[in-house]
Design a binder for these strands. Structure first.
Lengths: 225, 225
DNA sequence: CCAAAAGTGTTTCCTATACACCCATGT
DNA sequence: ACATGGGTGTATAGGAAACACTTTTGG
């Protein structure tokens, strides 16, 4: 037992894990195996330990509950509504997370009965205030995607221009001109063609890659003012 | 005394309070009256109570420690390094805050010996990890100022174009063309001239105002894609 | 040959930038 | 009159948006 002079809140992390299957934008959810909200779908996450940072806790919980490892996470908001957890005062530090969904077989573990991908457009009922957390995460993503190369965390090392385009369209919620998009990405400088080609139905496409070095060189080239 | 089955962290808020005196961008700091770091300058803030949200706590602590009331605050990051407080595990939810500095006589109270404005360019040594918090706050501000009308919280209801320009220059750290800036602000649509005039040395200037309604109408008019 | 997808080119429009110039006041 | 800051105008360049066309594969 741990005793304090003043009351302390609990602090958890919750991860809004994005994945892309080539068609739709998906979220990784777990079915809760313990009360409260047992049997309900929820964001993966859990209590932060005393010897780890929030980031470390978020990554650990993700691994434990879904088997997902070695991914990019980024804190975006801390939710502190007084009654957001029926048990006790719990504040949660929420993260955006991006996974290369591919054939990543998601494995349920720990407090989770199962872990499963859901299309963002068709989410189940959610535990706690997780619906609001997801809404804010989507807003944040739609905003950041315009200025930071986040979506590359969702794709393989090399990808087709069509895949990249589709992600932008799905996230932004409207269509983009294929040809202008193509040029825009190339003029950015950090989306570079590889020598690989890929074919499906029509003309074989070039595989492109994200060049992190080139991106870092020009982070400070913003145009407003 | 309060006992828990598992160890709990403490959670505090810290406010990076910006003010503008017509020349330089300033931060409101307090001299700590209690250990640890007694006598050192620090960000105003304190422990979040169990019956208030982080936002409410941030505003309350600001009022208690500096007398500042009724201002705009916005959460921007939660700092969770394990050893950031020597006493125990303390996570802090950090806020950007904006004050109309004017003749706001800042009053020290509570755990603060004194509260004082410091130019951002000339800050004293700071307690805890507050230097890092401020650094991140400045980065955030420099970014957000381009896309959100935050700076109006620093100005009176009506202001001259020169005052607005000066804030942008100070925040961004470089000069801007006075004439293009003027036009840009007007084309945005939500900076509107009032009928008041103000005179100092040269030609009397128009006083402008921020039109919140017009801003809200066009939040979604972003240009990238 | 045709369908399907990839890639390049062109034209227009808008806006950011770099300037020059005029205006209204106090002294 | 002139110094001082406020306000408007113009010309240019570069990027965004709209759209047409060519290329490369499979069937």
């Amino acid at each position: 037992m741990y005793t304090y002079e003043h009351p302390h809140p609990s602090v958890t992390t919750d991860c809004v894990v994005f994945g892309f299957d080539g068609e739709s934008l998906n979220l990784l959810l777990i079915e809760r195996g313990i009360e409260p909200y047992k049997g309900t779908w929820a964001l993966p996450g859990g209590f932060v330990r005393m010897n780890e940072t929030a980031e470390e806790g978020a990554l650990r919980e993700l691994q434990e509950e879904t088997g997902v490892e070695d991914i990019y996470v980024e804190q975006f908001h801390t939710f502190t509504a007084v009654d957001r957890d029926p048990r006790e005062r719990v504040m949660t530090i929420a993260f955006l997370a991006f996974v290369r969904q591919e054939k990543y077989s998601v494995i349920a573990g720990d407090d989770a009965v199962q872990a499963k991908w859901f299309p963002v457009k068709d989410l189940p009922e959610l535990a706690f205030d997780h619906q609001e957390i997801i809404r804010m995460a989507l807003d944040k993503l739609r905003w950041k995607i315009m200025y930071e190369p986040l979506v590359f965390h969702l794709l393989n090392k090399s990808f087709t221009m069509t895949q990249l385009l589709t992600i932008y369209e799905v996230v932004l919620g409207h269509e983009l001109d294929r040809r202008n998009f193509h040029k825009k990405m190339l003029t950015l400088g950090y989306v570079v063609p590889t020598k690989e080609r890929v074919r499906s139905v029509g003309r074989p496409g070039t595989l492109y890659a994200f060049d992190e070095e080139k991106y870092k060189e020009q982070i400070w080239n913003r145009n407003v003012f």
